[in-house]
Design a protein around this nucleic acid. Structure first.
Lengths: 227, 227
DNA sequence: TAGATTGTTAATCGATTAACAATC
DNA sequence: TAGATTGTTAATCGATTAACAATC
């Protein structure tokens, strides 16, 4: 088991639902590794990831074959295999637009470096914020004015929008103009972008509303469990 | 058109994929209403929501029939219909655990009130933070110590975890012990909960990693578009 | 060998899409 | 009536699940 070669498979063939779960498995493997656990079964890893073991095995089967029947998965090997497949090896540059509370939370978010990211720029419109230094993991970066966005974005591959909703579309347009094609948005608003640009939007209000619906539904159901 | 009655349908029958998109439509309708636009077609509303018109019409068809053939949807009526169906009328109480940057961002998030929420409590472990007042929309709330969580949670139906990952499971356990059954978690870690409790987890690192994969994939593709 | 667990198969389930009849 | 747009149908597509043969 000392010399194992991970079978490669075209990334295009892997279902997107599987791709979206791989980072979750990777994270769970991170923690197993930190605990010094060397081997894990699909049932155990699945439970730690919040999925069923069948789904986990099916997901992994799209990338290749990483386990040993009757034994399970070597934590180190599986971790490296998924990390390699995702391409975590060389970090992508991230620029954050908007440094209010949310932007600060994102900038100081631990766990970006292990995920294959490097924050390379911080931008805001507020003159009171521009110029201040924000700690980003090990290093620290100055907040630069919005006018410098194009310059800052030159060394970034991913843009993060953490502005108020009213400023989000403008921030988005500027990122796109600067050549950024992949954007993570926390603005409570749908962003219009040209084709070829991908936006992944997380709306806190929407997330809460989905949860709230389920809460109300559960509360009105006959077999509702009360504390 | 002055007296229209929305046909009701059992909430259980509606696909979960549809339920997750309804808040997005509601939000788009909010903005249309604010713009003074009275009527909208499925094609227009779909574009403003980032979906196809076929999907939008199919989604709405699960709730009932709200439009007029040849004309479109009455913005006011459709908004009210969806809001009623989701049950936005009487607000749910929200308690936020952890008031670092992320917790503050959530507490000051505008757009909770229109979504049918009322923040009823803020809790943190840090003695420096406990006792300070945090503005939540129109009112303002004091941060209370973790020991008071059970008391604070008594008037809440939803819990939000915005603590560091290391404290998340403990926060979760305490919320569950206090009778909270629906939790929104921003901790980078899978939370174990008893059955009957629902956790909706948003992991910033995971979201970024999914986006990063797509960026790397697009960059390596032959027909990649470069700015 | 006996027990355990993977990787894969085949069936089921749910979501999306395109097309169009109904109807304003 | 002619043009526009909904609500619904049926076909397609993708994801999940259960079961088990392969194999350590």
């Amino acid at each position: 088991m000392s010399l194992r070669i991970a079978p490669s498979r075209a990334r295009d063939e892997v279902p997107s639902a599987t791709v979206e779960r791989l980072p979750v498995y990777l994270h769970a493997l991170d923690r197993l590794r930190a605990s010094g656990i060397a081997t894990v079964s699909s049932a155990d890893l699945a439970e730690r990831s919040g999925v069923t073991s069948a789904k986990l095995r099916k997901d992994l089967s799209h990338l290749g074959s990483f386990g040993t029947r009757g034994v399970g998965y070597d934590v180190e090997f599986l971790h490296r295999s998924i990390a390699d497949w995702l391409g975590v090896h060389e970090p992508l540059g991230v620029v954050i637009v908007g440094l209010g509370n949310l932007g600060h939370a994102l900038a100081t978010y631990r766990g970006f470096a292990p995920g294959g990211f490097r924050i390379v720029g911080l931008v805001d419109v507020d003159p009171d914020v521009v110029g201040t230094d924000v700690p980003c993991g090990e290093h620290s970066l100055p907040v630069r004015p919005l006018a410098d966005l194009a310059e800052v974005a030159a060394s970034a591959q991913i843009g993060v929008i953490a502005t108020p909703g009213s400023a989000a579309q403008d921030a988005c347009d500027r990122l796109v103009a600067a050549g950024i094609t992949h954007i993570l948005s926390f603005a409570p608003r749908f962003l219009a972008v040209p084709s070829g640009v991908q936006v992944r939007a997380i709306d806190l209000g929407v997330e809460l509303q989905i949860l709230a619906f389920r809460q109300r539904q559960a509360a009105h159901e006959p077999g509702a469990v009360s504390a």
